[in-house]
Design a protein around this nucleic acid. Structure first.
Lengths: 289, 289
DNA sequence: TTCTAGGGCTAGAAAATCTTGGGGTAATGT
DNA sequence: ACATTACCCCAAGATTTTCTAGCCCTAGAA
């Protein structure tokens, strides 16, 4: 007796992962987004899994997908399993590289808030390797390999600074602005994602003006242009504070609008290891900046 | 702002699986065996993972591998995660194909014990699809997609029959055998895996004879040959019982040796679903056979 | 109506994964 | 001492899996 491999294999792991994401989000497109692949890829993986299981896991409808009865039943177990896998992976990374910290932040925050602090942090915590990744949406720290997340959030574990918006520009340009209506005479810079900021700020004072100006895909670019005197930028307090202090930018109008969000810092639950705790301390206590 | 994919990805899932197996078994070869791939494949996967993590997970020594400190720390979490994944997968299969039962058994058992019962089972449980897979080692039911495992085991959840060994042959051939010494005059068939059976049986009566005869890689083949009168086979009671009852084989000697093992049936913990329970009932209660 | 969002499908491209074949080292057996 | 055996490493090439790119389709929204 010695028979070998025709052991029925389990389903491909990647198909399970695709299913987990799609089931949790109830959407192939969203899952594809999360997994950083195309929708087609997810659809195929799930088809593979359905073939393996011999039953449909989703009901396809023109406006999206719904979990089938079968899919709904196994979804929780899959989510749990991938949670566990995520925890294990995170643990692996922490144990393997204890002196490495990976920060996730909104691109604007990464460039305008985190970046200027890095030299100080490195000096204060030698031997700690700090990586920064910019991304639009906060990562799931329990699953993804980031130690710290800094985003604008309505509520967050740890608040670094309240967000408030108000126009800013170079002192030169400011002289030409005495009332909000004057904004129509100058370019009003804005960020592609934060285009509403202008409308928000204006409507807070009962105004509605047709402003115009270039749009940037990176807020930091817009800030750069504002520093160049290219126009008036809608500033986010925590991100332009340093330029205001330096006097390179000024706020031509007193009115500022609180967005209800705050620059928030989140880290994984549990007591952070020593170096990470120190880093968090430095970031939140502004003491040294 | 709109930055995309350079999101640091997690490690490849397959690498994690390879690590889990290798860490649990503390051997690349054993892991490769479990995963049905070559040792080299496992080594590569683990190297990939080590590169991702930035630390060695195993210490390579000429006689094998040992978990490194890092590896040892994350091993339990990985095992847990893959346990969870296994549970989820099993659940998926059960929910998706509730009327399908998959039996794992030793090849000899599959052919000589399970197979003859299948027609009866199918008749008793119409609508239930029964698959059988032969394998050398009992599967981990918590992880692999089998519902029932039937093997010879020292202790098992449910005992179907005690194992005992004794020579068997055709009635014709039996006439030429009056004492064990006569075995030297005839071919003594045996199975490649159970080669010791002869020695075991002989030594139980204080004998040690130089027997010879062909070796088969499948016990069922050896049985077939015994039925053809090609020689004397060391019979395992549960596997040859039906031929003894039919009179096609006889036991030329009275002496039989209990191996201490038993034909054991195992299923997943928890209450089996109705059809599976019925199947177990039919298999264990010999009533209908 | 036209647009947009969400999906399906397929072929070809890209990437991950596996096998093969050739080397080592230590423990074991002869 | 000298094979043998059991493990593991590495590199090259073959395979399989997975992904992307187009193109098509449907139902709601503009």
């Amino acid at each position: 007796m010695a028979v070998n491999p025709p052991r029925p294999k389990g389903p491909p792991l990647n198909a399970l992962r695709a299913f987990e994401a799609a089931a949790r989000l109830e959407s192939f497109t969203a899952a594809a987004d999360e997994l950083c692949v195309t929708q087609g890829a997810v659809a195929q993986q799930i088809k593979t899994l359905e073939a393996w299981a011999g039953a449909a896991l989703f009901e396809r409808k023109p406006q999206g997908v719904t979990l089938s009865a079968v899919g709904r039943q196994v979804c929780p177990a899959m989510v749990d399993a991938f949670d566990a896998l995520g925890r294990a992976t995170v643990a692996l990374q922490q144990v393997a590289s204890p002196h490495r910290v990976h920060i996730a932040a909104l691109p604007a925050i990464a460039q305008l808030w985190v970046s200027p602090r890095l030299p100080g942090l490195r000096a204060a915590l030698p031997g700690l390797e700090i990586s920064v990744t910019a991304m639009e949406h906060p990562p799931n720290l329990a699953r993804e390999p980031f130690d710290l997340a800094i985003f604008f959030e309505a509520e967050s574990a740890q608040t670094l600074a309240q967000d408030a918006i108000f126009p800013v520009c170079t002192p030169d340009l400011a002289r030409r602005l005495s009332s909000p209506e004057d904004l129509m005479q100058v370019p009003c810079l804005c960020d592609a994602v934060w285009e509403q900021d202008w409308a928000t700020w204006l409507s807070e004072q009962g105004l509605k003006l047709p402003l115009r100006g270039p749009v940037y895909s990176l807020y930091a670019l817009a800030v750069e242009e504002a520093l160049n005197g290219a126009g008036v930028l809608m500033g986010h307090a925590p991100l332009v504070r340093r330029y205001l202090e330096q006097g390179r930018l000024v706020a031509p109008f007193r009115h500022q609008v609180f967005t209800g969000k705050a620059l928030g810092l989140r880290h994984r639950g549990g007591r952070p290891r020593a170096e990470l705790a120190a880093l968090i301390g430095l970031l939140s206590g502004e003491s040294c900046f």
